[in-house]
Design a protein around this nucleic acid. Structure first.
Lengths: 397, 397
DNA sequence: CCCTATTCGTCATGGCGGAAAACAAATTAG
DNA sequence: CTAATTTGTTTTCCGCCATGACGAATAGGG
């Protein structure tokens, strides 16, 4: 009647003692990262490892320069005081890079997740040759790296945030319409020593949100630039879908027979809540700082702008309600350009969410990103160093 | 500027040698399950374990009665022939149970994933006291268990498929409107020895689809009964969302200002593609076998029925396109009542998917479940025994 | 001041489990 | 019948964590 189990569910990997060590090193590392200065004994309690094992693991992490012992603080409790462990403020660091339409950015984040260097410069990158853009970025980056080195920080990996899609080949930009890029092998053009990884800016914004602790471990992060993108974070990880295309919120249907969209369909969300559509409704022309002007006029009470924002918010809310019904996230975060327009969008979206989600929806579960435009670059820097926290053994090679 | 890493990303568990053994036992088990009769050496090649380690692991699984050695088949290749390992056709088995509106079911699935006992009886369970229903189910179940025992099968766990929502407390049915159940503690009413777990029938249908190998490891399984539910399978696992409510496809908005829905919103998918809506459009009254009658009339070319199905398919397609844009599954599977109506729904849905998905959509990635109504019960049986395959160490306790 | 209770970190021992390599067994090719 | 080849087991070894004991560093009480 049946034919047995289907082939593989992605066959796991063999567990070895090296793997065990590796996992426990990571466990200690993440525990220290998450629970501030903490003693070995407390790590042991929290992880289930023995104190002896923790000692050995800490010793290894310590001599690799990943952990540091802080000065002892009097605890007031009886017994020998523990020695406070914390992630090292020196040593390995992550280099975050960003190519925006109107700016370039570089930042350095240390193991603790703290931003130590932050540089952004204005630049007109629209339709500029990628090699030229990356060359200028390299200059900005090098200054940032030098600054970091003065603080005894040693960047070990770079992540580049781009307003576009990552290509099938790692390290390439598949398409970035706003930059005019198409199939750009960024990591090859990148002449620096550091390994470079490319990631979509919206995804990195979502990761920044995750690691800065504003939202839960399961949320939808919506951000708008030219298009509308959503990043799904599930169980503390980016959810990319089977082919890596998950999160195309902008082309969810709002009205099946609505206005034609560039994608070929009709009534996509972008036709209601996309930058171009909103500006058109508001009677504004599209410029680099259009979002600011929208917000200004809304503050001034401009009827047409307010109506445009309400219309956008309603469409966005409807679509998000659908997404919430389907994915059941713990929160929805508005980032990117939407963050600045939160005052006017939030109430309408809340209304729609409340009305259209089958399960009761807590109003406070819809929130505006506190990171704003800094999200992508911050996320890039954090992502670059986060690997070390989540798997310190990669440095042992 | 920043405040370091956010608290936990669900802190992992400490790796111990026992855990290592456990993981490798599972690895051998799943490898044998997935790749048919296979020799120790081939398992070693495939998993990366050494032959010695595999031997030791197989020895343990063997003496626990989980693996069996088949008669040697001449391979024709040079060298000592391998001894073919396969999952045991005896020993531990899973008991699948189902309470439907019009029937009760029980089945027994062995370690290989093969159905060995299959029993379904008609019953009118609508608004019947849960204790009475479960008592009758227990009888059916016991006969099935006895039959299984005659085949040297020993059911070790039961999973119950219900057309409703699982409650917060494991083992309880939160709501099953079609049965008239509300907060029923099924596992307490279940007087049998076996541990009982309760799961939504649509989810189990999706798991059956997964394990029977029709679809990929990432897909959306749509099924309709009274409501429209979707089960998301991601990386070979059920995706439940933050609160366990993921998959409410029926209340995704199709037209923001469409007909009012029982959920309080307007224009939900259920108002277009739900059983009641389709029947109303088709001019049929609602009965137990309404789906059959729909299919019959459609086959006869009934204009009104065909129009109703087209309308439903179009709405379903629009919504699924949105879901695909958001989640990017490798496939979409139509199950439940939709499976029988596939001939008429499929073309329209394909059309919408092709038109509305941003990424190119392969027509063959939309398919109809071959399991039909058997899915939920089959999935229940398979789920009950699948745990042993995925973690054989649980039997060691 | 000294002694005890308490907690922390380390050290020594042991056992478990996989890796590596040698070996025995079973087949094909010639 | 021998050589070659592949399989499965045996043996030895090593890494890693658990266990338990011990020294270290504190607070509290007499």
């Amino acid at each position: 009647m049946s034919h047995g189990w289907a082939p593989p569910a992605h066959t796991g990997r063999a567990a070895s003692q090296q793997g065990m060590r590796r996992q426990n090193l990571a466990l200690v590392m993440t525990t220290v990262a998450a629970h501030g200065p903490i003693s070995r004994a407390a790590v042991a309690d929290r992880t289930g490892l023995t104190r002896a094992a923790v000692s050995s693991l800490v010793e290894e992490l310590n001599s690799a320069g990943l952990l540091a012992e802080l000065a002892a603080a009097p605890s007031g409790r009886v017994g020998r005081p523990g020695r406070a462990l914390a992630l090292s403020a020196q040593g390995p660091a992550g280099l975050g890079l960003e190519v925006g339409v109107g700016h370039l950015g570089a930042c350095v984040v240390d193991l603790r997740g703290e931003v130590r260097v932050w540089r952004q410069v204005a630049a007109s990158n629209r339709n500029r040759p990628p090699s030229e853009v990356l060359a200028e970025l390299a200059e900005v980056s090098q200054r940032a790296v030098h600054e970091a080195q003065d603080m005894r920080l040693r960047p070990i990996a770079a992540v580049l945030a781009v307003p576009g899609l990552v290509g099938d080949v790692p390290g390439t930009v598949g398409r970035a319409p706003n930059l005019g890029w198409r199939d750009v092998a960024a990591s090859e053009l990148w002449s620096q020593e550091l390994p470079l990884e490319v990631e979509n800016e919206a995804n990195l914004g979502a990761l920044a949100e995750l690691w800065q602790g504003a939202a839960a471990t399961d949320f939808i992060h919506v951000s708008a630039a030219a298009g509308i993108g959503a990043a799904l974070v599930v169980g503390g990880r980016l959810f990319r879908g089977a082919r890596g295309f998950a999160g195309e919120l902008g082309h969810m249907p709002v009205r099946p027979d609505g206005p034609a969209c560039a994608c070929g369909a009709h009534g996509c969300l972008e036709q209601y809540a996309g930058e171009e559509a909103v500006l058109r409704q508001a009677g504004l022309v599209r410029t680099e700082d259009a979002v600011h002007r929208l917000a200004d006029r809304a503050r001034d009470g401009d009827r047409r702008v307010l109506a445009a924002l309400e219309r956008a918010g309603r469409a966005l809310g409807t679509t998000l309600a659908g997404a919430v019904n389907l994915v059941d996230p713990a929160a929805v975060v508005l980032g990117g350009a939407y963050a600045e327009l939160g005052d006017w969008l939030l109430p309408v979206i809340r209304q729609e969410l409340t009305a259209r989600t089958l399960r009761p929806w807590q109003p406070e579960a819809l929130l505006v990103s506190a990171l704003g435009r800094r999200g992508p670059l911050l996320g890039a820097g954090m992502a670059a160093i986060r690997r070390i926290v989540e798997d310190p053994a990669v440095l042992r090679s």
